[in-house]
Design a protein around this nucleic acid. Structure first.
Lengths: 337, 337
DNA sequence: CTGAAAGCGCTTACAG
DNA sequence: CTGAAAGCGCTTACAG
């Protein structure tokens, strides 16, 4: 790594400027010198120093991705992992490297890190405190939010259309003939859990309401809570002859399914179960879980291309971008023949 | 972000050198000027430019993590996601930012990217081609490998003790009384799948062998293959009265469980199932899956601390570090009362 | 205790 | 078509 542009220039018998021009491809160079220089670069395996380049161009060609989440899993979270899997190749194809950071304390420190690194832009994932946004806004770094929630009209954010997803779930279960449904609702401070529930309930409201809807609120949205609440409400569940469970995310649904399995309740024979998110978990459990899939792929790639527009100061961007959800019909809600 | 050290110096009425010394904390400064300078920095929200600092210190304080894998999921892969979740906070606590990159083509391009960024070190995850290693070795960047395989004695690599894990699995199933076991073995070119199988078989060999062992090889280690192979071999499986399935990873096991569920085979009542990896999938499916857990937490944090030693040229590091696996006994192998 | 100067490895006008 | 010079924002000896 000891070799720098000066070294290449000397070996090729030209000046640094010439080497620089040839590498960047802009500016003239006779094909003869170009070939000579390129040969030296190739042979010496010269790697231009991106740090020095960033210094002068005032562009690092790297972006920062911060996932705000209090608890593990973060990167291995079923939804955020997929988002990152979409972001990475999209960033690479536009020439950006990505700094990834998780922030469990939801603090400003992670942002500071990124700011010092002079990232060209920032993708903020998940729910983050208002003060983080206010802080980021003070600096002139481009940023956008994915899967978070904010009432700040300045913030560009990408979210899934959770309300419509909730409606789809309602229509699906109702269409299957379920008239007594147990709803397991994740934390309502979260935009997505809130809208999923709202959409689900609204669908019934708009059709004159339905008697048999029981909503149980969960303070967290993980497997353990789904399991605990299903177990605690088991007697009431039976008493009300519920024939279906709708949970506002897959992990809660999986927790509920565990209890059903342990009680030898046949899914979907006796009770149908639906989740939300479209994680891989829903696809590989047995019976496979019917769910409403969030379009993480498009959200991830769009986040990158939109950020790139911001960085390059090109074009006008919408403040809010909503992504349609898609219901995936699987075994857990299948009707018997 | 327009303010630089010069600006701070002017506002505080001192020289750049003084500001620099105060920020870095080394070098003298009267407490009076120190306070004044710090106040200006605070008020102006000055963020030192890490790029410029890297330029002169020849240290970027960032490391590169590359995950080599042909197919999605990569970051959302159950095992690699956990590894990254361990790496990120460990890196941060040592003052490193991390560039994350996935490389589906298993090419040299991802390495070049990192090299140009002048990362202080490289963590290479999963199985990578020999030419990548040979390439990295040419440069003087510190690196190490996690969960890969190599016969190159120079390469520091961190792996789980898969062979012992395979033995643990064998002992567990045998101890439960299973005498006819169907083994679903992932790609044998992968070190881990190979050793898991070897360990499993060796345990029986050393005890005089066992008749009822059927090994079926799978060219890939995902859910779909587990499912397909279990379905294809279903008749033979029944004919041999197999009472247990051991798969060399959780996804294969999950695929097999799907087939069993669809055939209304009770797990563990009629057939016990075991996986390997200790992914979250194994914990949340129903019945929960008995598995052998890889210590991703320690592998991830060790990878970072060891790389840091390499970067700082401190201490001698072992070439190979093996991490003990731990069997997690769950519902899928539970004996009936 | 503090400041002037050199230098890290590039790129970018500007001359020639 | 090519090179000399200035400058990006810092740190680090070296004087004073």
């Amino acid at each position: 790594m000891s070799l720098n542009i000066e070294g290449i220039a000397k070996l090729a018998g030209v000046s640094r400027s010439t080497v620089s021009r040839i590498i960047s491809g802009k500016g003239y160079a006779s094909s003869e010198t170009r070939e000579r220089v390129l040969a030296v670069i190739e042979q010496m395996q010269y790697k231009p120093n991106a740090v020095a380049r960033a210094m002068v161009s005032q562009r690092t060609n790297s972006i920062g991705v911060i996932v705000f989440r209090e608890r593990q899993p973060i990167v291995s979270h079923p939804l955020y992992g997929k988002l990152i899997d979409a972001i990475l190749p999209a960033a690479e194809s536009l020439g950006y490297s990505v700094f990834l950071q998780t922030d469990q304390e939801m603090s400003l420190r992670s942002t500071d890190f990124m700011l010092e690194k002079r990232v060209d832009g920032l993708i903020l994932i998940s729910r983050l405190r208002k003060n983080v946004i206010d802080y980021v806004k003070k600096f002139d770094v481009p940023y956008l939010m994915v899967n978070g929630s904010t009432d700040d009209p300045d913030v560009i954010h990408l979210v899934s259309d959770d309300e419509s997803g909730g409606r789809q779930a309602a229509a699906h279960l109702h269409g299957l003939g379920h008239r007594s449904i147990w709803v397991l609702a994740g934390p309502q401070e979260h935009r997505s859990h809130n809208l999923r529930l709202e959409g689900f309930l609204a669908w019934f409201e708009e059709r004159g309401g339905m008697e048999g809807l029981t909503v149980v609120h969960s303070p967290e949205s993980n497997f353990e809570l789904g399991r605990r609440l299903m177990a605690e409400h088991w007697e009431a569940f039976k008493r009300q002859d519920c024939t279906a469970v709708f949970a506002t995310n897959d992990m809660l649904a999986l927790g509920a399914m565990r209890v059903l399995a342990e009680r030898s309740v046949d899914v979907p024979g006796q009770v149908a179960v639906m989740g939300f998110d479209g994680t891989d978990y829903a696809a590989v459990c047995s019976p496979s879980l019917t769910t409403v899939q969030v379009d993480t792929q498009r959200m991830g790639t769009d986040a990158v291309t939109m950020l790139d527009c911001l960085v390059r100061r090109e074009g006008e961007l919408p403040r809010l971008k909503e992504y349609e959800c898609r219901l995936i019909d699987r075994q857990s809600t299948r009707r018997e023949e």
